[in-house]
Amino acid sequence: MKNAQRPTPNATPAGPMPITVEDVSFTYPSGTHALRGVSLRIAPGEAMAIVGENGAGKTTLVKHLNGLLKPSQGRVLVGDWDTREHSVAKTAARVGYVFQNPDDQIVERTVGDEVGFGPKQLGRTEAERAADVAAALALVELSDYAKTHPYDLTTAQRKLVTLASVLAMRTPILIFDEPTMGQDARGLALIGGIVERLKGEGRTVLTITHDIDFCAAHFGRVVVMADGQVLADGAAADVLARAELLATTNVEPPQLVRLAQALRLPRAALTVDGFVETLQGSRGAGGQG
């Protein structure tokens, strides 16, 4: 755990960087209407999760945030940049995006070079890059593997490498696509810790996830998508308690919410401690305890 003491890659000095999605619609060349009039404002430092079933438009939406897709209608602003006016490569200095499948991302022959790829594209000096790489690898606890070939690691470790390779770019905004897929309890805790740390530094963290318990534990704001539209948008505790609404896009509430609802507790908590508190309160009131 010595690694965790080392400094985190600092945010770029670009300053607070809100994201504004203004009435965005997007239609794929195939004719699929993937987004229909989505509007969102994401404040700097927010931790927001996007949930919904496959095909709801989650990935299409986040691909608009770094300019990989340009709106058919409406506009997307990252800070003061309209994504249509800047290349994806330029926007990469502001928005880091970790793809779902690590094997779509890894290009270098060592873990260290892989993590240094982004900083290199951003034009950082070798010394800066070395510091970025060391700090990012420490965060994902893979410092000992800098010289290892990425394909000698497990898939779960490779996913952490891709996470580090975006952390090393020190962007004010980060997007994680299914960060917990294939991770075990230790990996979950590690990624959860990184999200908390980024939040603490005031950076914007966005995720697409099916892991609703992970979402409940670390993301204060939840956006529910269905059929290319925003179905609900609000505080995680409120949104994740709306079982009927979530069911329309095939999302199950977190385990603790389901339990609280099955027990008809007055309030659904997102943490174990919160659950026990609610339980204590209701038992005290009901005189059952």
């Binding site: 770094n66 290349s87 994806v88 990469a92 928005v95 880091g96 793809f99 982004g118 594209q121 975006v166």
Partner: peptide, 18 residues
């Protein structure tokens, strides 16, 4: 499809392709 995704992932890390 895969090639497009890989290219997107690299552009997202600052690789200039335009």
């Amino acid at each position: 499809t895969k090639a497009t995704t890989i290219l997107d992932a690299q552009r997202s890390r600052g690789l200039e392709t335009e």
